[in-house]
Nucleic acid binder design. Structure first.
Length: 458
RNA sequence: GUGGUCGUAGCUCAGUUGGUUAGAGCGAUAGAUUGUGGAUCUAUAGGUCGUGGGUUCAAGCCCCAUCUUCCACCCCA
């Protein structure tokens, strides 16, 4: 049989032992912080019904969904109706509906909303949950962007309190402090953005304004103005927007300017008030990382209605490594209206890339075997097995070389696996009841009892 | 979805205006050294040059397509 070249799908990756140790280091810290803030874990299936997923992420999002072909003869019972659509796009949509009814999850928030509605009678509200699972997007891979990646979500649903927003910022601060990544926590509020659109007389252009404003720090004022013109804003509106775009510096100043700006916008003032509450709390809490009220922060999915949060690494060129916000009615579409939720998502893969770039992984997390028993043959093997079990129950990671290979080979194995100690037990040791313990680092070796070895190894 | 980029041994890469049998370093395997690893020396193995077509007397090199890598845009973690 002709052998095929092994490969994995575009945008997916294998993880080596070293990478896994490091990834787990990140996951462990994230989970431990989530737990300490009182959140409970859940998991949902990798695949959801397409009806759950479609239409939740905008038109672009639908295109990025991985769809799963139905099992069996999926062409069976395919209606002729497809042909009645004149344009190819509609024909494709219609065909897709008939041959695929499942898709891979695109994020953890929408499945969570589905979960909450489906299990509403079993849950205790406000429900605080965390979820660490992979998600899939049919995006083009590039730096910090993969087709399969892990999100670590924390959300609280069923509470309008702004204390939840404060808590999420604290969680982000705690996690990035522990991972030793310097970050800036950027905060904004959808209502503030809506207020701005109202105040400049273009409430229907909210999305266009936010998308353009979001690029301010990247492309500069001129480009943003150009884009606003392109997106159909009047010159009068753009003129009114100028003082807002120019807002920089102290949070206090921003509040002063915006309060005046929002004279006639109730929504804007409401958003401003929410920001004030959150920021005042954060100021009292002495976070280790910096935070800022950034009105150009517009990112976030279309369902955000209140606070928007984004975290960026300060010392690495990487998109946001954590983001989230409040959504007033996420469960409404699944039949449970009026349930407000707020959550953030940590991008584990991007966090990994940042830490790798900045060399932030501690050396000590290398999970190596502590001791290797050399295999000298059948009798010795049998003898070693008992001592091996004893070391293991003492919590010392240890192994016995499974074959009576040449000593050189076994030593090389220990060397390459970074095993710190080798235990040699041959005829002599078996007779004396002692073991030869060799320190692979110094090369020194000595005869000792197993109990003495245990102390040295632990 | 748009634009660009990469692909030669397990890994990192050479390979001249198209020219005979595609090379190096590292790694692997074996030995020098039958109870002692990292160093050294010697030898050996390892390739349908991403894949498919085309141009040519002749293609790793030129052309087309396709897949993959990486990057930017859109959007996002």
């Amino acid at each position: 049989m002709a052998s095929q070249k092994p490969s994995i799908p575009k945008g997916t990756r294998d993880f080596s032992p070293l990478e896994m140790v490091r990834r787990n280091y990140i996951f462990d810290i994230i989970r431990s912080i989530f737990k300490v803030f009182g959140y409970q874990p859940i998991e949902t299936p990798a695949m959801e019904n397409l009806t759950t997923l479609m239409g939740k992420y905008g038109e672009e999002g639908d295109k990025l969904l991985f769809k799963i072909l139905n099992s069996g003869n999926y062409l069976d019972g395919l209606p002729e109706s497809a042909s009645r659509f004149p344009d190819p796009a509609s024909r494709l949509t219609d065909l897709t509906k008939h041959i695929a009814e499942k898709g891979l999850r695109y994020d953890l928030t929408v499945p969570f909303a589905r979960f909450v509605v489906q299990h509403q009678n079993e849950l205790i509200f406000p429900f605080k949950r965390y979820q660490v699972q992979p998600v899939w997007r049919a995006d083009r891979p590039q730096k910090g962007r993969y087709r399969e990646f892990f999100q670590c979500d924390v959300d609280v649903i069923g509470s309008n309190s702004l204390l939840n927003e404060v808590e999420l910022a604290q969680i982000a601060d705690a996690i990035f402090s522990k991972l030793d990544i310097n970050v800036l926590i950027r905060l904004n509020n959808r209502k503030v953005l809506a207020g701005i659109a109202e105040a400049i007389g273009a409430p229907d252009k909210l999305t266009d304004i936010t998308v353009a404003m979001d690029k301010l720090d990247k492309t500069g004022m001129d480009k943003v103005t150009d884009e606003l013109v392109e997106r159909g804003l009047t010159y009068e509106s753009i003129e009114k927007l100028q003082p807002v775009l120019a807002l920089e510096g102290k949070i206090k100043m921003k509040f002063e300017t915006l309060t005046g700006f929002f004279r006639d916008s109730e929504t804007g003032l409401k958003g401003l008030e929410e920001m004030r509450t959150i920021l005042e709390h954060l100021k009292d809490l002495n976070l280790k990382n910096k935070f800022d009220f950034d009105i150009t922060l517009a990112r976030g999915l279309s369902y955000y209605t209140g606070t928007i949060i984004e975290v960026k690494a300060l010392d690495a060129a990487m998109g946001s490594i954590c983001g989230g916000g409040r959504y007033d009615d996420l469960t409404g579409i699944f039949g449970l209206p009026g349930m407000s939720g707020v959550g953030i998502s940590f991008g584990a893969d991007r966090i990994y890339d940042v830490m790798n770039e900045l060399n932030l992984f501690p050396e000590t997390i290398q999970a190596a075997t502590r001791a290797l028993f050399v295999n000298f043959g059948k009798e010795e093997e049998k003898y070693c097995l008992k001592l091996l079990a004893s070391l293991r129950s003492a919590g010392i990671p240890s192994e016995l070389y499974p074959e009576n290979a040449k000593l050189k080979k076994q030593m090389e194995y220990a060397n390459r696996k970074n095993i710190s100690f080798v235990i040699l037990i041959g005829k002599d040791e078996m007779e004396s009841g002692k073991i030869t313990l060799k320190d692979m680092r110094s090369g020194e070796q000595k005869l000792c009892t197993l109990d003495e070895a245990k102390i040295l190894l632990s």
